[in-house]
Design a protein around this nucleic acid. Structure first.
Lengths: 123, 123
DNA sequence: GTTGTATTCAACCATTCAGTTGAGGAAGGA
DNA sequence: TCCTTCCTCAACTGAATGGTTGAATACAAC
């Protein structure tokens, strides 16, 4: 379903090289060779990266003689944005609601150390 | 620096189980056991998933006796949204610009091979 | 036809990852 | 104290991933 594509999109963008390629393609279409140029890896590796991006629907390829110009598909980004915004807003609202509750509690009783959350694993 | 976290965030959300957990946490905080309940995997597996989410900064954990309630960190989503929006807009604008150019071209000469998307971008 | 260029396919290797089981640590309740 | 609950750590396994090299395909140009 949609869920599967979402997985592929996120997985595709989890790689810094692929994100870099997306950034490059946002400027303008480019062939596989042109995309491979800045990197220190084989053209085959880049070709694989493009396949991952294409499978996620982030990139489409056309034909120009032997060349396969890559084109960024902006609309797919909407899927991601929609997913993110949904939960961001939900969490945000909950946070604000909690904040209001805490404020109310503070006006009633004296603050204890409830809600001592700590960040896990500093890396 | 930031790039590394972005990678971790995207990688964390590439897994449907973890996305599901995020959806669950958007509703409200939950302990590891509560999060594990709906799934058919071991608690240890869920614990690992939470660690991945925490390392990405998407989730924080607090202490409540033996329990470790998990809390969704909404602000980290902004990092993602910012990244996405940047390239989405860039690509969108380019697309619209190209569209205008094509419209102009169409008014001059007749279209020959449509569907062949090409764009030099030779820099 | 032959050569050259652009790209992909195939097989392989090393690493990472999601799952498992088993053991252990920390806290509450008997 | 002993027992149970909640959670994490450690070690292992099989699958996926990112990289490599070498061969194959497709097209252009000579």
């Amino acid at each position: 379903m949609d869920d599967d594509q979402l997985s592929r999109i996120f997985a595709a963008l989890a790689d810094p090289t692929r994100r870099d390629m997306v950034a490059r393609l946002a400027v303008g279409d480019a062939t596989v060779g042109e995309l491979a140029d800045p990197y220190d890896v084989s053209v085959q590796a880049v070709s694989k990266h493009i396949k991952v991006l294409a499978d996620a629907g982030l990139v489409s390829q056309s034909k120009d003689a032997q060349r396969r110009p890559c084109h960024l598909e902006a609309k797919v980004f909407d899927l991601m944005t929609k997913w993110i915004e949904r939960y961001r807003q939900q969490a945000q609202q909950r946070y604000e609601r909690l904040d209001a509750v805490l404020a109310e509690m503070r006006s009633d009783e004296q603050p204890s150390d409830r809600g001592n959350r700590q960040q896990g694993a500093a890396s």
